[in-house]
């Protein structure tokens, strides 16, 4: 039965991981807007024949993903 100590410790470790993930998501602003991303994802990519394909890296301080190609 000693294994239970290890299992409890492991489960708490995993659970803490989820807690940290949650806190990070809140801090990152993912809970600020629960509507717009659901619309944004449905926009079609444009067929603009331009060659400025610079995929923008989303900067770490603000919201969500960027979808401009």
């Amino acid at each position: 039965m000693k294994v239970i100590f290890i299992l409890v410790a492991a489960s708490l470790l995993v659970a803490s991981g989820f807690l940290v993930a949650f806190l990070w998501a809140v801090r990152n602003g993912q809970y600020d807007d629960d509507y717009t991303p659901s619309v944004r994802i449905l926009f079609d990519e444009d067929k603009v024949p331009e060659n400025n394909i610079d995929i923008e890296q989303s900067d770490d301080d603000s919201l969500a993903e960027s979808d401009n190609t």
Binding site: D32, D33, D34, Y35, T36, V39, R40, L42, F43, E56, S62, L63, A64, S66, D67, N68
Partner: peptide
């Protein structure tokens, strides 16, 4: 939804704009 699309594509109308993000709820 069209509002969101237009306002998030403002950089096509003004190339000084690098990024625009809509919060629909607010």
């Amino acid at each position: 939804s069209s509002c969101i699309w237009l306002l998030e594509n403002l950089e096509r109308l003004d190339d000084g704009i690098s990024r625009s993000v809509v919060n629909f709820v607010k």
